[in-house]
Simulated scan of single mutants.
Amino acid sequence: MTLILPDLLWHQGTLQKGFAVEWDGSGVTGLRLAEPDDRADACPHILMPACTDLQVNGSGGVMLNSDPSPEALAAIVTAQRARGTGWVLPTLITTTLDLMEQAADAVIAAWGMPGLLGLHFEGPYLSLARKGTHRAAFIRPFEPDMIPILARLREAGIPVMLTLAPECVPAQTIARLHDMGVVLSAGHTDATAEEARAGLAAGVSCFTHLYNAMPQMQSRAPGVIAAAIGSEAYAGIIADGHHVAWEMIALACRARPRPRRMFLVSDAMATIGGPDHFTLYGERIELRDGKLVNADGALAGAHVDMVTSLRHLIRDVGLDPEEAIAMASDTPHQAMGLPAPQIAPGRHRAECLALDADLRPIALPG
């Protein structure tokens, strides 16, 4: 038996001192209070559950849009787990109903795969004015044929997130999807503050990559961003240094009326653990100066992992470590209606994350 004595252990939503973690090389076998005569085999500064990412478009050289298969899901999850993200919500961006059904079939077939948390459909029921890199030709009104796809996933017990523009989907449809247990997230939206609040009242409980693909706040037009920040809904945000300025992340986090409603997302693409370019909608997307851009130089997803994003929150945004860790671990699970993961017996090594004093990942024994 190996003994890990972290300076700080993420335990029940806080960083705590004085714990000893028993370890057999493949995962946690015991958790107890440290004793004076304990001899450590490893002493990380922080030991926490691996990160959770609710927006992963691709990794390991694979885009889910290009290959909605169980093999692609495995490649994405494996690449993320190698980089400190233990749980992944693979994300299919705006596409045809046929590909959406294929992605649902793939997740159902792969369900039970360690690290596979569910499925995120980002679109296609979005605002054309705020489409971002999503293909305009595929953006459309909500279609009844989507209901059976979502129902099959939910009947299988699979968590599902659907990003939509609340001003583009009828309130009764939003309410029906909410009643099915689909987590509805407002994104790629041109909604006014009033339209966003109507979406929240109908069943929207989350916002997708806050600030991005949304109209920016104005003194007399607060818009969806102000409605999101002022609400008690959950909101994802990208912390890669390109999508949102550090000051704007800090502003959103500190202005929320209820704590622990912000969470990190990577918006990761195939370049994480893969080549420096890939194809989306037949267009080449490549990595330039740390960011992913299309032929016009516009942002097209992100090239960042969750551990790096967590470090950014603490070092660049200036958040308290407990607030930042919650954004990478507990809050994403809670946004999906799932219990937060804990360091506890049975927790596999790929579901544990050890960080040094500089907040960089370090290997655990075994």
Rank of each mutant, 00 (worst) to 15 (best):
I4S: 04
L5I: 13
W10Y: 04
W10E: 04
H11D: 10
Q12H: 15
G13V: 13
Q16E: 12
G18M: 06
G18L: 08
V21C: 01
V21S: 05
V21Q: 00
V21H: 01
W23R: 11
T29N: 02
L33T: 14
R39D: 04
R39F: 02
A40G: 06
D41G: 14
D41R: 01
A42W: 01
C43F: 00
C43Q: 14
I46W: 13
M48N: 03
C51D: 02
L54H: 10
L54D: 03
L54C: 04
G58H: 04
G61K: 01
N65F: 01
D67Q: 13
D67M: 06
S69N: 10
S69L: 08
A74F: 04
A74M: 08
I76F: 01
I76W: 00
V88E: 04
P90T: 11
I93C: 02
T95E: 07
T95Y: 04
L97C: 05
D98Y: 04
M100P: 06
A103N: 07
A104Q: 02
D105F: 01
P114V: 14
L116S: 03
L119V: 12
E122T: 13
P124C: 12
P124I: 11
L126Q: 11
L126I: 12
R130N: 06
T133V: 15
R135K: 14
A137M: 03
A137I: 12
F138N: 13
P141V: 10
F142H: 11
P144C: 09
P148L: 06
I149K: 03
A151Q: 15
E155A: 15
G157R: 08
M161C: 14
M161P: 03
T163E: 03
P166V: 09
E167C: 05
P170K: 06
P170V: 03
P170C: 03
Q172M: 05
T173I: 15
T173A: 02
A175W: 09
R176D: 14
L177T: 11
L177W: 12
V182W: 07
S185Q: 08
S185Y: 09
S185D: 07
H188Y: 11
A196P: 01
A196K: 05
R197E: 15
G199Q: 07
A202M: 01
T208D: 04
M214K: 03
Q216W: 11
Q218R: 15
A221W: 12
P222Y: 08
I225Y: 01
I229D: 01
G230K: 10
I237P: 01
I238N: 03
H242C: 02
M248Q: 14
R258N: 02
V265C: 00
V265N: 00
S266R: 01
T279M: 06
Y281V: 12
Y281K: 05
R288F: 07
G290E: 13
K291A: 14
L292S: 11
V293E: 12
A295F: 06
D296L: 11
L299Y: 09
G301S: 13
G301Y: 09
V304N: 00
M306A: 11
M306P: 06
V307M: 05
V307D: 02
T308L: 00
S309D: 06
S309H: 08
P321K: 13
I325H: 04
I325G: 03
I325R: 00
S329F: 00
M336N: 08
L338T: 14
P339W: 05
G346A: 02
G346P: 05
R347G: 00
R347C: 08
R347S: 08
A354G: 08
L355T: 09
D356L: 04
L359Y: 15
